[in-house]
Simulated scan of single mutants.
Amino acid sequence: MTRIKIFADSTCDLPEDLIKQHHIGIIPLYVIFGEQSYKDGVDITTPQLYEKVEQLGSLPKTAAPSPADFMESFKPFIEQGQDILYISLSSELSSTYQNAQIAADEFPEGRVTVFDSLNLSTGIGLQVMKAVDAAEKGSTVSEIVELLHNVRPQVETEFVIDSLDYLYKGGRCSGMQNIVGSLLKIRPVIKVIDGKMTPAYKVRGKREKAIEQLLNNTLDKIDQMDGDTIFVTHSLADDDAANLQQILREKTGARRVITSNAGCVISSHCGEKTIGILFTKKVL
């Protein structure tokens, strides 16, 4: 057991085998349909989320863990003598970071450190894995935080949204935009910039064209990659993810190319068949 316990939240979208292998603590966000609240990945899965949206015709709300949730998760490890480093969902997207900081302040100074990933999904996961690797090699919390400050701006996060329906239901585009976009088969591409989801460009035409553009954007940056981990993260797009994984393994020479499933919180904002490629560039 390392002296440092690494925590993330359910939006990091790391595969279960990596979470178990490296003993990563996961704190779930909440998915709320009407009066019913579910813990992301604990009480509800992504397929179940889509079933409920189909039945109800509306999207759920999502909510951050409370400070009490964080305290309850952190306390046993503090009592065991471990220090905690929690890597959060972007503070630009959620109050998760702020609530974790409130919880951290309830413990003795220096025992709980909260780091803002300024990212989402496996854009967080990439930073978590850097932290885990460093902790297992004996780095201190302050050394890991310094590493993360250098890594964070080098994370590349880009997703293709397959349909405007979820952006429309979530109030992120107008009804007219949704109709026009559907008729023209426009697929927006989202990048994370300065911690925010930012529309980067739109691809008009078949889904395959949009995925090819996503792949080409990644391959254009091979020389900038750090060569460690590439994530292909998706919401119920297994075949496309497997295909991208194979190509990226052949073309990039990365140490590992991993497919991962988007959890309920990420999926509720982006929708079914969303797919992304995420990696880190070399630290300058």
Rank of each mutant, 00 (worst) to 15 (best):
F107A: 06
A64C: 11
I4G: 13
I186S: 05
N261V: 15
I6Q: 15
K5Q: 14
T218I: 09
K251W: 07
A104H: 02
V114Q: 02
K5C: 09
G171Q: 11
D40T: 13
V128S: 02
H269F: 10
V145T: 14
A134S: 13
T62N: 07
N119G: 14
H269D: 05
I179N: 00
L167K: 06
I190R: 08
P153Q: 10
A242D: 09
T233D: 08
K169C: 07
T274I: 00
D116V: 00
N217V: 01
Q82G: 01
M176D: 15
N119W: 07
I161E: 02
R172N: 08
M197K: 11
L214S: 02
G253T: 06
K52R: 14
C12N: 11
G195L: 01
T229D: 07
A63G: 06
T259D: 04
V192C: 06
D13S: 06
A254P: 05
D105G: 04
P76Q: 09
L244Y: 09
E79S: 01
A100K: 05
K52G: 12
A100E: 12
Y50C: 14
V232M: 07
T11M: 08
A210D: 04
Q224F: 13
D9R: 02
T252C: 12
Q154P: 02
I247V: 14
I26C: 11
I27L: 08
L215E: 15
L49Q: 11
E272A: 13
G205Q: 07
V180Y: 14
I26E: 03
